[in-house]
Simulated assay, not measured.
Amino acid sequence: METLKIVKIGGNIIDDSKALDAFLEQFSRMESPKLLVHGGGKLASQLAQKMEVEVKMVQGRRITDAETLDIITMVYGGKINKNIVAKLQSLSCNAIGFTGADGNTIVSVKRPVKDIDYGFVGDVETVNTEILELLMGQDIAPIFCAITHDSQGSLLNTNADTIASELAIGFAEKYNVELYYCFEKNGVLRDVNDDDSVIETITEPIYQNLLSEGIIADGMLPKLNNCFHAINKNVTKVCIGKPNMLTQATTKFTTITK
């Protein structure tokens, strides 16, 4: 089986132009097939403030009303996505920008209202890989932003970590899929104030112990849930760390295993 590398970059890399340029140079040197998923960074919130649209957050998650969805679409699917594609072209890496609506690649359902109404937020239901396989077969890298659709004409704001894991699972039948979550830390840390305290391997039992000890919390919880979801659905390899883990075998990072 051919190996497919799926890389997700967080908003912290998007917000730092030097870090983004350095990452895209690394990504451009990776062998095909490859696919990139990117978050949104702070730009959507900054634009919302300029447009006097209230930014609503509950437990660290954005409430996406109609006005916010318009801003997210402009920023994620427009400015950020197309700037990444343009920079990759300058590095001789042919790329095409995607939302889940393009080519009907990712279909989601609007998140049901339970305790909180998140608005136009999507939970992924299906992934269609055929068009993406054709593009990657021509050495073209798909570049996904954090937007999907519901097949009823509506776009949906969707967690980028989830998009990356669902794409990885969708390709797992035909490829050896390696999934990399890149952010500003060396990996999952035992001490958040010590960047050298990387937990290099996390299994399900280790994860449960880390949870009970309170070492893993907040934003790392959904990220690790996506990691285990992927590894339990036949994704070959899942790693978390700084972007240089993609090219430097000796770099510290976290590997998720069964």
Rank of each mutant, 00 (worst) to 15 (best):
T3V: 02
L4Q: 13
K8W: 08
I9R: 09
N12G: 09
I13V: 08
I13T: 01
I14L: 05
Q26E: 12
Q26I: 01
F27E: 00
S28V: 03
M30Y: 15
E31W: 00
S32L: 04
G41M: 14
A44M: 09
Q46S: 07
V55T: 11
V55E: 08
V55S: 02
K56A: 02
R62P: 00
D65E: 14
A66C: 04
T73D: 10
Y76A: 06
Y76C: 06
G78A: 13
K79C: 04
K79F: 14
I80F: 06
I80K: 01
I80P: 00
K82L: 07
K82T: 07
K87L: 02
Q89P: 00
L91V: 02
F98W: 11
G100W: 11
D102L: 15
N104K: 06
T105A: 12
K114R: 10
D115F: 13
T126C: 02
T129V: 13
E133K: 15
L134T: 11
I143W: 12
A146F: 14
S154K: 11
S154P: 00
N159E: 07
D161M: 09
S165D: 10
I169P: 00
F171G: 05
N176L: 07
N176F: 09
Y180H: 12
Y181F: 15
Y181G: 02
N186M: 05
N186K: 11
S197A: 12
T201I: 10
T203S: 12
T203D: 13
P205C: 04
N209I: 02
I215A: 09
K223M: 08
N225K: 15
N226S: 07
H229S: 11
N232M: 08
N232I: 00
K233S: 14
V235D: 04
K237F: 06
C239L: 07
N244T: 14
A249I: 12
A249T: 13
T250F: 12
K258Y: 14
K258L: 02
